[in-house]
Lab assay of single mutants.
Amino acid sequence: MIVFVRFNSSHGFPVEVDSDTSIFQLKEVVAKRQGVPADQLRVIFAGKELRNDWTVQNCDLDQQSIVHIVQRPWRKGQEMNATGGDDPRNAAGGCEREPQSLTRVDLSSSVLPGDSVGLAVILHTDSRKDSPPAGSPAGRSIYNSFYVYCKGPCQRVQPGKLRVQCSTCRQATLTLTQGPSCWDDVLIPNRMSGECQSPHCPGTSAEFFFKCGAHPTSDKETSVALHLIATNSRNITCITCTDVRSPVLVFQCNSRHVICLDCFHLYCVTRLNDRQFVHDPQLGYSLPCVAGCPNSLIKELHHFRILGEEQYNRYQQYGAEECVLQMGGVLCPRPGCGAGLLPEPDQRKVTCEGGNGLGCGFAFCRECKEAYHEGECSAVFEASGTTTQAYRVDERAAEQARWEAASKETIKKTTKPCPRCHVPVEKNGGCMHMKCPQPQCRLEWCWNCGCEWNRVCMGDHWFDV
């Protein structure tokens, strides 16, 4: 396979590697080409510095992935760790964990309700045991953590790749202090920090972006993250068709209702045909949960890209028209025109101005929308079919299609509260000796007794199943 190397943020060049090629071997190839010592090179990928003893497969490097290699003399205490030698983080029983690669970060837990604080980093599902597709590297999971809308060759929703760059020099040479644990960490600028490894760059702020994971991409090709779309790892039924499908869209209502993408497309087109989208002054033209839940309008309007190009163009047109109407304007009634106009409040005669090729020149009556006339309008008909009709959803289907309910059931079956801080902690095999993952707590306690870890627990039921 081919990976592209950008040395000291210059133009990239291809390097041929195998899945079992080590990072140090990659350094040696680059060092020979650039005429520099291999031990002064640092390989940066997806916000993480890659260790010498890791392989291309370990690092989730795919065909035509772009890695950054910078030349920086080692500072005291760094060289041993980078070589894969006596790194205290690798000691058996050590409590410190390697910062998780962005290629394996899962933010789907952050669609849980606000009262489930902490689960994004504490609760991990076991539903990723799908067998890898044919042709994928051994052991590589097909679980997708992110979804994007690819405006490039795909023109559809695709699995996405999370990447990070330095907000100062805009190069992907920043190593994160810690990985993101929720969508806010990724979507809110300057929320996460790190250290830029580019020479002479003092940058410390992280800037995240997404790429389409279905095809090789260049540095400049980015895609918009659709953070309401998630892999259906909890096997929730769709609120409309009641099938279990994946991926799904999880509405931001209190129940976190789930809808499959085909039904979401149908829901949007139906509402669009009836012009029953909601115009929100802050958000724009949007839709609420299909069950009509309060405070559930979709905030990231790129989710409506699921409509496809033709329907999305209609959505944008109707949204612009609705904006004009909300501002007190009118639409030209001549067939084939429909231009938005903003006449004076007491102006009865409205002319669709033909300047700049935008208007048709038609003069019409503001009251009856017919060709302009003197005197009273002959008839004014009330528009028919403008009443909002509820999208029919079966109550039982709505009850079963809740992301929140599956989460709470998982928590109930696989977790116990920490005796000190009461945060839910998952036990997935292993011994009875637990350690609270909350940095402010870190209590060592017994899963069996529910009390602080002691010699009695150690001698009596340390390794009970």
Score class of each variant (00 low, 15 high):
residue 206 A to S: 04
residue 233 S to E: 08
residue 421 C to R: 00
residue 197 Q to E: 11
residue 148 V to W: 01
residue 303 H to D: 00
residue 221 E to M: 07
residue 241 C to F: 00
residue 314 R to L: 03
residue 146 F to H: 03
residue 83 T to H: 10
residue 216 P to T: 10
residue 360 C to Q: 03
residue 325 L to W: 04
residue 216 P to F: 08
residue 313 N to E: 09
residue 280 D to I: 13
residue 386 T to E: 12
residue 207 E to I: 05
residue 80 M to N: 11
residue 244 V to I: 13
residue 243 D to N: 15
residue 343 P to W: 04
residue 195 E to L: 09
residue 275 R to I: 00
residue 53 D to G: 05
residue 98 E to A: 10
residue 209 F to I: 15
residue 126 D to F: 05
residue 176 L to T: 06
residue 325 L to T: 05
residue 176 L to D: 02
residue 302 H to Y: 10
residue 253 C to Q: 00
residue 125 T to F: 04
residue 10 S to A: 06
residue 311 Q to W: 04
residue 155 Q to H: 13
residue 375 G to Q: 07
residue 224 V to K: 13
residue 264 F to K: 01
residue 51 R to K: 14
residue 126 D to S: 07
residue 291 A to M: 14
residue 113 P to S: 11
residue 44 I to W: 06
residue 38 A to R: 05
residue 451 C to R: 15
residue 185 D to Q: 03
residue 265 H to N: 07
residue 221 E to D: 11
residue 146 F to Q: 02
residue 237 T to M: 11
residue 413 K to W: 10
residue 21 T to M: 15
residue 377 C to I: 02
residue 262 D to I: 03
residue 27 K to P: 01
residue 295 N to T: 06
residue 191 R to L: 06
residue 154 C to E: 01
residue 360 C to D: 03
residue 193 S to L: 11
residue 113 P to I: 08
residue 3 V to T: 03
residue 397 A to R: 07
residue 414 T to Q: 10
residue 59 C to K: 02
residue 90 N to H: 12
residue 409 E to V: 08
residue 126 D to T: 08
residue 229 I to E: 00
residue 112 L to P: 13
residue 51 R to A: 11
residue 173 T to I: 05
residue 257 H to C: 02
residue 108 S to L: 07
residue 197 Q to Y: 08
residue 415 T to N: 13
residue 201 C to Q: 00
residue 148 V to M: 02
residue 87 D to F: 12
residue 284 G to R: 04
residue 440 Q to C: 11
residue 85 G to M: 12
residue 336 G to D: 07
residue 293 C to K: 00
residue 240 T to Y: 06
residue 287 L to F: 01
residue 17 V to A: 02
residue 462 W to L: 15
residue 429 G to K: 14
residue 250 V to I: 13
residue 268 C to D: 00
residue 334 R to M: 14
residue 357 G to E: 13
residue 387 T to N: 14
residue 194 G to Y: 02
residue 334 R to W: 06
residue 86 D to Y: 12
residue 69 I to P: 00
residue 82 A to W: 14
residue 191 R to H: 07
residue 290 V to M: 05
residue 371 A to E: 14
residue 216 P to R: 06
residue 317 Q to N: 14
residue 398 A to G: 07
residue 154 C to R: 01
